[in-house]
């Protein structure tokens, strides 16, 4: 019923199987979601394979683009974490490129937005949360627990502050994943709703069309911005794990 509605804004998020694969009773079919993950991977690979095909001192456009993204993430990591963060650079860089391309490919009509599914963003956020917690305990031992009790807080406030800090720490993966997912979901739904208005209003459809163009530009900004926010928050969490005193 809802799926039959041509302007159902949720329809675009539905997952359909392309190839049915079962492994030990678990459904791991290759779906449209998987296809667009592969597209994001392919887009990143294409950018860097072309960008790195001619390594020259004076870069051409594609090399410039790949170097820009490299420097952008490298600087972000250096600013947030410092030199200790160098080890995590491949992960942070991959994370940014993957989310960035998933968000952007999703902006093309009739495509699927991988990052609009909470399970995907939550998988990233959960992985980051667990990794950051492990890194925190490995690097600082039990001293990592200091992040729940910031220095300079009077002792009588501890019963209040410590639970708040623990809750805020535990809610990090949820806020991180929901932020990205909800942004993609809401933005794409609104685009779809306004696209539907254009069809419904007939000749008067130019008004929502103008609005759609503006909204599309905004969504483009959000697609880039959310990839950036996800990455920089990961860097900040990593910094907290490496330097719990700050």
């Amino acid at each position: 019923m809802a799926a039959d509605n041509p302007i159902d804004p949720i329809h675009q998020f539905e997952i359909s199987k392309i190839a049915d694969i079962q492994l030990g009773g678990i459904d791991i079919s290759f779906t449209n979601s998987s296809l667009f993950m592969v597209f994001a991977l392919a887009a990143t690979m294409t950018l860097f394979v072309i960008g790195l095909s001619k390594k020259s001192i004076i870069p051409n456009r594609m090399q410039m683009l790949s170097e820009l993204s490299y420097n952008f993430i490298a600087n972000m990591l250096r600013d947030q974490v410092g030199d200790q963060g160098r080890v995590y650079f491949p992960f942070i860089f991959s994370l940014f490129m993957f989310i960035f391309f998933c968000n952007f490919i999703g902006l093309i009509p009739y495509t699927f937005t991988v990052t609009s599914h909470l399970i995907v963003t939550f998988a990233f956020a959960g992985l980051i949360f667990i990794a950051v917690t492990i890194i925190g305990f490995v690097k600082n031992g039990l001293g990592y627990l200091r992040i729940f009790y910031p220095s300079g807080i009077p002792i009588f406030l501890a019963p209040l502050i410590v639970p708040i800090e623990i809750i805020s720490y535990l809610s990090k993966p949820i806020s991180l994943s929901v932020r990205l997912c909800a942004n993609m979901l809401a933005g794409h739904s609104i685009l779809k709703i306004f696209a539907g208005f254009i069809v419904m209003l007939g000749f008067l459809g130019f008004a929502p069309l103008v609005f759609l163009v503006v909204l599309y530009a905004l969504e483009t900004l959000i697609a880039a911005l959310q990839a950036y926010i996800f990455t920089i928050l990961t860097c900040i969490y990593l910094n907290d794990a490496l330097h719990p005193d700050h």
Binding site: L23, F30, S34, H117, A123
Partner: peptide, 19 residues
């Protein structure tokens, strides 16, 4: 749909990470 999404996410992201 979660197992399939997670499975393909692990595969594609691992490949990207290695790359």
């Amino acid at each position: 749909t979660f197992p399939s999404q997670l499975f393909w996410l692990v595969i594609t992201f691992s490949l990207l990470y290695l790359f």
